[in-house]
Computed example of a mutant assay.
Amino acid sequence: MAQIDGQWDCEVDSPMGKQQSLLTLTASGTGFAGVASGPLGSVEITNGQVLGDQLSFKMAITLPMPMTLDCEARLIGDDRIEGTVDTGAFGRFPLRATRRG
């Protein structure tokens, strides 16, 4: 299983500009849980799944409007995550994260 425990500086390119957050991830069984914290507050990371170097997870946000974000990504080496955030009707946007020191 990919080693995802830790803190990750995350950036998503969205129509509202670059959205930055801190992901705090903790492995649990064959999956993971965590929290994404940013300027609009914190949100729980749920349904975290790991298959090899492939990651998927969800975040139910309330700001700027309520929606569930479906995230799919790949762990690259031990220090990068790259993937997409699917917002449904608003489209898919690139996600990049780097492990904190």
Score class of each variant (00 low, 15 high):
Ala2Met: 01
Gln3Leu: 05
Asp5Pro: 10
Gly6Val: 04
Gln7Trp: 02
Gln7Tyr: 00
Asp9Met: 02
Cys10Thr: 13
Glu11Met: 08
Glu11Arg: 13
Glu11His: 07
Asp13Asn: 10
Ser14His: 14
Met16Asp: 11
Lys18Met: 03
Gln19Tyr: 05
Gln20Lys: 14
Leu22Tyr: 00
Leu23His: 11
Thr24Ser: 06
Leu25Gln: 06
Thr26Val: 13
Ser28Cys: 05
Ser28Ile: 06
Ser28Lys: 14
Gly29Ala: 15
Gly29Thr: 07
Thr30Asn: 15
Phe32Cys: 14
Ala33Ser: 14
Ala33Met: 08
Ala36Ile: 01
Gly38Tyr: 01
Gly38Ser: 08
Pro39Val: 09
Leu40Phe: 07
Gly41Ser: 07
Gly41Met: 02
Ser42Met: 04
Val43Lys: 05
Val43Leu: 01
Ile45Cys: 09
Ile45Thr: 06
Thr46Met: 06
Gly48Gln: 06
Gly48Met: 04
Gln49Gly: 02
Val50Cys: 11
Val50Phe: 09
Gly52Lys: 11
Gly52Pro: 02
Asp53His: 10
Asp53Trp: 01
Asp53Arg: 12
Gln54Lys: 15
Leu55Phe: 07
Ser56Thr: 11
Phe57Leu: 09
Phe57Ala: 10
Phe57Ile: 07
Met59Glu: 13
Ala60Trp: 00
Ile61Arg: 01
Thr62His: 07
Thr62Trp: 03
Met65Phe: 11
Met67Arg: 15
Thr68Cys: 12
Thr68His: 14
Leu69Tyr: 01
Cys71Ala: 09
Glu72Arg: 14
Ala73Glu: 07
Ala73Gly: 09
Arg74Ala: 09
Ile76Asp: 14
Gly77Tyr: 12
Asp79Glu: 07
Asp79Val: 02
Asp79Ser: 13
Ile81Asp: 08
Ile81Pro: 03
Glu82Trp: 02
Glu82Met: 05
Thr84Cys: 12
Thr84Tyr: 13
Thr84Asn: 15
Asp86Arg: 12
Asp86Ser: 14
Thr87His: 11
Gly88Leu: 12
Gly88Ala: 08
Gly88Met: 10
Ala89Cys: 06
Phe90Asn: 12
Gly91Lys: 07
Gly91Pro: 06
Arg92Asp: 07
Phe93Leu: 05
Pro94Gly: 11
Leu95Tyr: 13
Ala97Asp: 03
Ala97Glu: 06
Ala97His: 09
Thr98Gly: 10
Thr98His: 12
Thr98Ile: 02
Arg99Pro: 12
Gly101Arg: 15
